[in-house]
Amino acid sequence: MRFYKRLTPIKVVSFDLDDTLYDNVPVIAAAESWLLDALKHDHPESTLLDKTSLATIKRQLLRCRPELAHDVGACRLAVLTEGLSRQGVANGRARELAEEYYRGFLAVRGRIQVPKATHKVLTALGRHYRLAVITNGNLPIEHTELAPYFELVLQAGKDGRMKPAPDMFQRLAEQAGVSLSEILHIGDHRDTDVAGAVLSGCQSVWLNDANQSEAGLSCLPHLTLERLEQLLELL
């Protein structure tokens, strides 16, 4: 634990999700694998629906529709729809199929493994603070064991631009009826979580459990933790 700035009174503790409260790497890998296998099974003749081609379609769409960069769910749905359309599937049907594939992707995406330490921390903090989520991702949290802990959940796209933009931090303050300085945001990413929170006027904790270099910080958090459980020594 390393302090950079003194904490002031806190009313809301917000968390990033992916790689903060659980390991997201195997989850995304499994969901991506399911999606590619499903596309290959249903369209074995296709060379347009593999990982490389879908990435190319994504880059092309983002050039035409840059707003998709702030909504990973809408972006994935648009990529799948465009890929199926290029396969000759009629527009309306392409959208229907894309939504079906995306639902399957989300079902696998939601199979997270929440560590006991995360449960312990959220249970303890929930006795003293209002808890919230601010995420750039598309985890269907309502279908996971994390859902009961959080009063408010803000997700990029429907709740504003992605972190580090200030949109979701400001919206959380409005919905919770607190000032930005009364929010303590905790996350693993130096830019989206640390810089996003600090530049929005919130307090910030950087969860540096991957031993990243502090040289990559564009601004200082209030403190750095090596393990999520250290929050229990602090709050």
Rank of each mutant, 00 (worst) to 15 (best):
R2Q: 00
T8Q: 01
T8R: 04
P9I: 00
I10T: 00
K11D: 01
D16E: 03
L21V: 00
P26L: 01
P26S: 05
A29H: 13
W34L: 03
D42I: 07
L48H: 14
T52H: 11
R59C: 10
Q60L: 09
Q60V: 10
L62W: 02
V79Q: 13
G83D: 10
V89N: 12
N91R: 08
R95T: 05
R103Q: 12
F105N: 10
G110V: 05
Q113F: 01
A117K: 12
A117F: 03
H119P: 07
A124L: 08
H128K: 15
H128R: 15
H128V: 12
H128T: 13
Y129T: 14
V133R: 13
N138I: 11
L139C: 06
L139G: 06
T144W: 08
E145Q: 12
V153L: 06
D159W: 02
P166T: 04
P166M: 04
D167H: 12
M168L: 03
A176G: 01
V178D: 03
L180Y: 06
L180T: 05
H189Y: 06
H189E: 13
T192H: 13
V194Q: 11
A195V: 08
V198K: 13
V205E: 05
S213G: 13
A215E: 15
C219F: 12
H222I: 03
T224S: 08
T224P: 06
E229R: 13
Q230T: 14
Q230S: 15
